[in-house]
Design a protein around this nucleic acid. Structure first.
Length: 226
DNA sequence: AATTAATCCAACCGCGAGGGG
DNA sequence: TCCCCTCGCGGTTGGATTAAT
């Protein structure tokens, strides 16, 4: 890759710019600036907000942590099921997947996939990339694994679901992929809408408590927080 | 209590897409 | 058409935390 010829510059001028974890003060500066001014150009944001960060870092911090519409907390089983379904169709297109989950970030979903769901699928004998069984002799026996299996907490995603009668045909025809299982569960009891009803705003308490913070600012139509 | 291993997740990096001059 | 720039995406890293020994 010939960066100099193509003119692509490093994301930031390394000299004098801070990296690493954000401080409360930095968060507050960035938040205040965006609330008051919106976002026109990320490259200008740190300069105008008085931050010694590159625009890219500011953008990431805003999107993954400061955005007021972020839904925090653990993923629900329904969300996990939906992620698996979407991943089987979209692959590692995390932003596309995240678009189906209001309040979740692509980074959050990606991390959850890499740390939890992948392990769960491997444990079930499924290839996380293809969503198909890894080896034939490790076939998932749906009648055993989908029903309650108290001995393995890794099966939780499937534990609390029963299978519709018509779906038994699917299981009889072939070894189900995790996508099949997801379809069965979605058709049964977990419409995605149920995930968002528990939507909850949880801001970093430290700067909510700080002087000058006003929830009213989020009503600014220019910011699109509705 | 100390050390090591495992896990989690925020943040960084490199790259491609796309737009403007 | 080419060059430059910004933005956004996906992969990866590394520090903090937790669990195990």
């Amino acid at each position: 890759m010939q960066l100099t010829k193509m003119g692509r510059q490093p994301c930031c001028d390394k000299n004098g710019l801070r990296r690493g974890p954000w401080t409360i003060e930095e968060d507050h500066k960035l938040m205040t600036f965006i609330l008051n001014n919106g976002i026109q150009c990320w490259r200008l944001v740190p300069k105008l907000a008085g931050l010694m960060r590159c625009g890219k870092s500011c953008r990431l911090r805003w999107i993954n942590y400061l955005r007021p519409d972020l839904k925090r907390g653990a993923f629900t089983e329904a969300e996990e099921d939906m992620i698996i379904q979407l991943h089987s169709r979209l692959g590692n297109r995390w932003s596309k997947i995240a678009a189906q989950f209001p309040g979740r970030t692509d980074n959050e979903i990606k991390n959850h996939w890499n740390t939890r769901i992948k392990k769960k699928m491997k444990y079930l004998g499924l290839d996380p990339r293809t969503h198909h069984p890894i080896e034939q002799h490790h076939n998932l026996d749906p009648t055993v694994n989908i029903q309650n299996d108290e001995s393995t907490s890794s099966y939780n995603t499937f534990n609390n679901h029963t299978i519709k009668e018509e779906n038994v045909n699917i299981l009889n025809d072939k070894t189900p992929t995790i996508e099949d299982i997801g379809v069965m569960m979605m058709s049964h009891d977990h419409p995605l809408e149920s995930c968002s009803t528990s939507f909850e705003l949880e801001f970093p308490q430290n700067w909510i408590d700080s002087p000058g913070f006003q929830w009213d600012a989020f009503n600014d139509p220019g910011l699109g927080f509705h």
